[in-house]
Write a protein that binds this DNA or RNA. Structure first.
Length: 257
DNA sequence: TGGCATGTTGGCGA
DNA sequence: CTCGCCAACATGCC
């Protein structure tokens, strides 16, 4: 449920909490698709010291001093805790040498942990390698709708359902526009809106929730927000299902077909 | 109360 | 091959 800006905020705070701590024990309880055995995880991570925590797409990457990485994906319902409580649906528990306990829980059992994930095939939405040229070339070559394009992690990684709507409104492009039909000028607007909306959201989240490491903050959203009926400029917000997800948009957004 | 919200995967049909 | 859509996963929330 948390999206890119939430995850960026979590990584910021987790790094503050966990950097320099050494893993005493790691236990993996339930997860359907591990890319290594429990023994391999333990072997690779025991006695390792956390060097940095960063967001990569919709995952959090934890890198240790020797360069080993484990990646957490919260999927729909994953939650993170740094505390000493028992968590009923813990997926992964990591105990550090100072008895700090870090838990990823998910009652739905979909959250995952991966050891040394391979290089992803698409860049992170905020990565410097996503240039305007990369972005516009990619759009020119696809006939899908722009909303589906933004959600497809094979194009850009990190954007989810809620922020896709916020970004498209910011760029004034209708979600059902065909990628290859969007004019150059609007592609440029969209490119800048991606960065603007996502980085601004992270700032707002950290401002209102300075210590956040789990959950999501949505109250500042302008369009993808069940509590709002109108955009900031007074246009009625429409709702429509697309790909099984609810899409919010207004008539201020131009449709390119 | 019960439908909605979320991401990913894999399968189906156009 | 491309694209849209659907089901499945499971439960807290309004």
């Amino acid at each position: 449920m948390p999206e890119l800006p939430d995850l960026s905020a979590f990584s910021h705070n987790l790094q503050k909490k966990l950097k320099g701590k050494t893993i005493k024990n790691i236990s993996i309880h339930t997860t359907k698709k591990l890319n290594a055995s429990r023994g391999e995880f333990e072997q690779a991570l025991k006695h390792q010291t956390i060097e940095k925590v960063e967001r990569n797409g919709k995952e959090l990457y934890f890198t240790t001093k020797d360069g080993t990485v484990f990646a957490l994906h919260l999927m729909l319902r994953g939650q993170l805790f740094v505390d000493n409580k028992e968590h009923k649906s813990a997926v992964v528990e990591i105990l550090f040498d100072d008895d700090t306990r870090f838990v990823m829980a998910d009652y739905q059992g979909l959250a995952t942990i991966r050891l040394n994930p391979e290089e992803p095939d698409a860049p992170d939405a905020l990565d410097g390698q996503v240039t305007l040229k990369y972005f516009s070339d990619k759009l020119a070559g696809t006939k899908a709708t722009i909303k589906n394009f933004l959600l497809d992690q094979h194009n850009l990684r990190g954007i989810g359902n809620a922020y896709a709507d916020e970004i498209l409104w910011d760029a004034r492009i209708a979600p059902f526009s065909i990628c290859s039909k969007i004019p150059e000028e609007q592609v440029k607007d969209l490119y800048h809106s991606i960065r603007k909306v996502l980085t601004h959201a992270e700032k707002q989240i950290l401002q209102s929730n300075p210590d956040i490491i789990s959950g999501e903050v949505r109250d500042f959203m302008l369009i993808h927000n069940a509590n709002r009926t109108e955009s900031p400029d007074g246009a009625k917000i429409h709702q429509k299902m697309a790909g099984g997800r609810k899409t919010y948009y207004t008539d201020e957004q131009d449709l390119y077909k």
